[in-house]
């Protein structure tokens, strides 16, 4: 959990020229100012009020926070090749990502792994988007096997293996998505900061990209 609490303060003029400020709490600290402003403008557009200001407030809880220590990010060595050439062609099916019913393995070369932890469990989120870029559905892993880990004492690989199905929270099919993003989240450890890498499929078959976000 982040020890930074971010809020947006929306100031409006409403009925009878009354000035009102309202806080939208639990803003993602990583959200940029433009995205926060757009959300506040959209919310205010649902009212008869006139938006006069948006302030961002980042509060750091220093009560329990440990002294700041510079932490390395998990680094993936793309120069050594990622999404190995001998991997099966990437496809998006009805509710799977991979070469077919058997799923697919990704062995992505890591660069230097500085974590003191031998095993880093890697969480992932799957979001899908429509052709116009708007949100389509969020998918979760519905059974099967998922392995996402880093083992610095063995081969320095970030290994991901999917052998199950994805289920749309709104009952949508992955096949109907124009773009799918899978965020692999390397959690914060004693020596590494939280780092997210995103695997993006922009077609139903073929190329994928993999980059830090």
């Amino acid at each position: 959990m982040s020890n930074i609490k971010t809020s947006a303060i929306i100031t409006t003029v409403g009925a009878n020229n009354k000035v009102v400020s309202k806080a939208i709490t639990d803003i993602n600290p990583n959200a940029d100012n433009g995205a926060i402003k757009t959300l506040c403008q959209s919310l205010n557009s649902l009212t008869n009020n006139t938006l006069t200001g948006v302030q961002r407030v980042d509060k750091t809880d220093i009560t329990t926070a440990t002294p700041s220590v510079a932490k390395a990010e998990v680094t993936l060595d793309t120069t050594r090749g990622h999404l190995d050439e001998d991997l099966p062609t990437l496809k998006i099916g009805y509710n799977y990502i991979g070469a077919g019913e058997g799923g697919v393995d990704y062995y992505i070369h890591l660069g230097e792994v500085t974590s003191s932890d031998t095993w880093i469990p890697v969480a992932f989120l799957v979001a899908a988007y429509k052709a116009d870029g708007t949100f389509f559905d969020e998918f979760y892993y519905n059974g099967g096997t998922f392995i996402g880990y880093v083992d610095k004492d063995r081969d320095p690989y970030f290994a991901v293996k999917f052998t199950g199905n994805f289920q749309g929270r709104n009952e949508n099919s992955l096949a109907d998505a124009a773009r799918i993003e899978i965020d692999f989240i390397f959690p914060e450890t004693a020596t590494t900061a939280e780092t997210t890498y995103r695997l993006t499929f922009t077609h139903t078959e073929g190329e994928a990209t993999f980059a830090k976000v």
């Binding site: 939208i24 639990d26 993602n28 995205a35 979001a127 708007t134 949100f135």
Partner: peptide
């Protein structure tokens, strides 16, 4: 889509 990534 506007709220995604901004609030949690």
């Amino acid at each position: 889509s506007i709220a995604a990534g901004v609030i949690f």
